[in-house]
Each structure stands twice: as structure tokens, then as C-alpha cells.
Simulated scan of single mutants.
Amino acid sequence: MPSGSNAKRERQYEHIKDSAKDRGESDKRAKEIASRTVNKERARSGESKAASRTSTRDMPSSRRGGQRSHSGAQGPTRDQLYNEARQRGIKGRSTMSKAQLSKALGR
């Protein structure tokens, strides 16, 4: 649990952590997801000393609800495609765009 939190944030942290575990995340990953979410909510509501611009001006985590996960319509990121191309030994991968990598991998 992030330091300097109140009882509400502790309950929120536990709820998010339990939800992540129910989805099959590891204990370490569930704690990371919960901490990041709670810290962002604290920053948005002015409970933290320092807050990044994206924390305060971005869409709230509760409303976003996984809209930016990489399993959506856009598919894997360029870096994910690049790593797969590297594992398969595809030549010229470092200069390829996301579309070119996708085509070279047969997607």
C-alpha cells in the first residue's frame, strides 16, 4: 500500500489487488497494478505532494477500464512485434515500421 494513504485508499488498493488476482495476475503484478491505480487517484484528487501532468489531466482509471490494453483493435505494439521478429531471426527488422513488421511476421 502506498505510504500516506487513508482508509478509503487502502480499501481501494485491496479491491484492485484482489480483482487483478482473480483475473490471473501474479501477486507481484497485482500489487503493482493496485499501487499505480491508487497513486494516480491520489494525485487526481490532490492527496499527493507531487503529481505528473498525465495523472491530473488524463482520463480517470475507473472510467478508462482497460480501453488502452494492447489486446484491442490496434493489436501488439511495434516493440512487441520487433521482439517477436528478433526471436524468429527476421533480417532488416530494425528499420521496419509496425506495419512492415506485422507483414513480415505473417499477421
Rank of each mutant, 00 (worst) to 15 (best):
A43G: 13
R36A: 01
K49P: 04
S71W: 00
G65L: 00
D18T: 13
N39Y: 02
Q12D: 15
S69L: 03
R64K: 04
G66C: 01
K28V: 08
R29M: 03
K28D: 15
S69H: 02
D27L: 08
K28Y: 15
A34T: 14
A34F: 05
S71Y: 01
T54S: 07
K49L: 06
K31F: 03
T56V: 09
R44L: 11
G72S: 03
R44I: 05
S35F: 12
A20E: 14
K40R: 13
E47T: 01
T56F: 08
D18M: 11
S61L: 02
R29N: 14
N39D: 03
K31N: 07
T54I: 08
N39Q: 12
E47R: 10
S62C: 00
E14S: 12
E25W: 05
M59L: 09
D58E: 02
R29I: 01
I16S: 04
A30G: 14
G65F: 00
S26M: 03
E14N: 06
Y13S: 10
R29H: 09
S35A: 14
K49I: 14
T54R: 11
P60K: 03
K31G: 10
V38I: 15
S55T: 07
S69A: 06
T37Y: 10
R36G: 10
K49Q: 13
A50N: 10
K17P: 02
G66R: 05
R36V: 05
G72R: 00
G24Q: 03
E32M: 11
S55L: 01
K49V: 06
Q12H: 15
S19W: 06
S35W: 06
S61D: 08
V38E: 04
A30F: 06
D27Y: 08
E32N: 11
V38M: 02
